[in-house]
Amino acid sequence: MKDILRLSLPLSVWIAAFSGVYGLEGVVCSDRGAGAGLGLGQGRAVLVVAWVVAIAVQVGLIFGLRTPRFASAQPWVQRVSMILACVALVATVWSLLPVVTTSLCL
């Protein structure tokens, strides 16, 4: 079961981060966000920080899953889990890139 967790963890973290940033963007652009005095500049800063943190976590996972403590004893599982961790990193960079390239709240 630990091997199944190893395989599913990085992408699960991606979907959590992705949903979280999307939710954050929803809050920033909502009337409630504006009502709380959150300006667009601060809003974007929050989103970018969240993106960077998500990337850092994925990089951390890649290194973490290599350490003897968390690596799988089965070479095949280890290899697939490393590829999946890289997939999750690429997904994090790719899917949240719009936080720096796209207009906010239009």
């Binding site: 790719w94 719009p98 390239t101 796209t102 207009s103 239009l106």
Partner: peptide, 17 residues
């Protein structure tokens, strides 16, 4: 990647600024 960037760029141009 190329298509995504182009699609987003077009989307930006169509926004009601």
């Amino acid at each position: 990647a190329a298509l995504t960037v182009w699609g987003l760029w077009i989307g930006e141009r169509l926004l009601p600024r």
